[in-house]
Amino acid sequence: MRESVLEAVPRGSTRHLRRWHMARILETLCRKPGIPRSRLARLLHLSPSAVSEAVGELLSQGLLLERPLPPKGQGRPSVALEVEEEVNLVLAWEVDVDRMAVALMSLRGRVQTRRILPPSPENPQAALDLLVDATLPLLRGKRILAAGLSVPGLLEPHEGHLTLAPNLGWRDLPLGEMFQRALRSLGVGSIPFLVENEANAAAYGLYALGGWSVDHCLYLNLGVGVGGGVVVDRRVYHGARFHAGEVGHIPLDPEGPVCACGKRGCAEVYLSYRRWQAGASEELLREIADRLAHLTAIVLSVLDPALVVVGGPLAEELGERLVLEARARLPRYALGVHNPEQLVRSPLGREAALMGVGALAAARFVEHMAFGEVV
């Protein structure tokens, strides 16, 4: 969520420093493609020789491309630098109750290939095997730099341990290890990789790919369940035990229907996409909007985000109608300091988690280039 993942200067050899320069240049060109070496040196406060050395190595690795800029008067024409986006890609996997998905994306976030699969089976290994089978034909002629997996569950992101994914029926899994084994079966087991909660991945995507400008927001993924991704100072906030954002299990009515978690009247009981599919009507739309307004008021009071962003299958199905109806009801629940305009739709739509975890994988590759072990 930071403007840069490369804030700390690495300690070590000249080789460590050069890799840090390479990573900073790659990160800059992902945000600002088509600029020459001289401008890179000014933007990054590096010497021309340091830029030339790092760019030369990135070109030799095939990570950058050169193209001539239009001439300006006399003299030697400048050469613009761009990130290569056809061969060097990241792999993104999404596992969810209503679908699974595979995408190959460039470091800049352009989706080159996407495949949508049926809903996840209950057996987690079977789900990963299906994703492997769908991915393998896509890899011919491609170089996979990093990989990311998003799931709707409680995760410890550093180790990749999944505590619970109630809507998938998964619990207590070494998901990171399982993901790495799946990558090995694809022949890319040595690359940087990560697993992340779907709502956190989608929240990251708002900044990396959606051009988001606010520093604090909450992303609500309205699907089979309700997931939340909390952003504080442009960083995903995981919480003390990595369970921040579980807003789907905030009780809105203690006498309401039983939730999958065992409690009654949780937000996801009312805001479930399955519920809409089972009984779509104008009356149900108004009730869902009222529940969304209630939940939005709670998170506005607790977290004070600049925006509450809704996405996922239900938000896509109901579109702007859901947001407008919920905004109209928000003053009934929210404090006067909060504005109904703080509730908005995600610009990334249904693909938010898939694209967000791909963006996280790209950031992990750049970070690994800067700070990974030098051999």
Rank of each mutant, 00 (worst) to 15 (best):
M1E: 13
R2D: 14
R2G: 11
L17T: 05
W20P: 05
H21F: 10
R24M: 08
I25H: 00
E27Y: 06
S38G: 12
L44W: 12
E53I: 06
A54L: 07
A54S: 11
G56L: 07
E57S: 06
Q61A: 12
E66M: 13
P70E: 14
P71A: 10
Q74I: 06
L89Y: 09
V95G: 03
D98E: 15
M100C: 13
S106A: 14
R115Q: 15
P118Q: 14
P124Y: 12
L128E: 01
L139Q: 07
R143Q: 13
A146Y: 05
L149T: 00
G153N: 08
L154S: 10
P157S: 13
P157M: 09
L168D: 10
L168T: 06
L175E: 02
F179A: 05
V188A: 04
S190Q: 14
L194I: 11
N197L: 01
A199L: 07
A201I: 00
D215C: 04
H216W: 15
H216E: 14
R234D: 02
R235S: 14
V236W: 03
H238D: 05
G239K: 13
G245L: 00
V247T: 05
I250Q: 01
D253H: 12
V258T: 15
C259L: 09
R264W: 09
G265W: 02
C266A: 04
Y270E: 03
L271N: 00
S272D: 08
S272H: 12
G279A: 11
A289Q: 04
V299W: 15
P305T: 15
A306Q: 15
V308G: 02
P313C: 04
L322A: 01
A326N: 02
R329Y: 04
Y333I: 03
Q342R: 15
L343R: 04
V344C: 09
G349T: 10
M355S: 10
G358P: 08
A370S: 08
V374L: 12
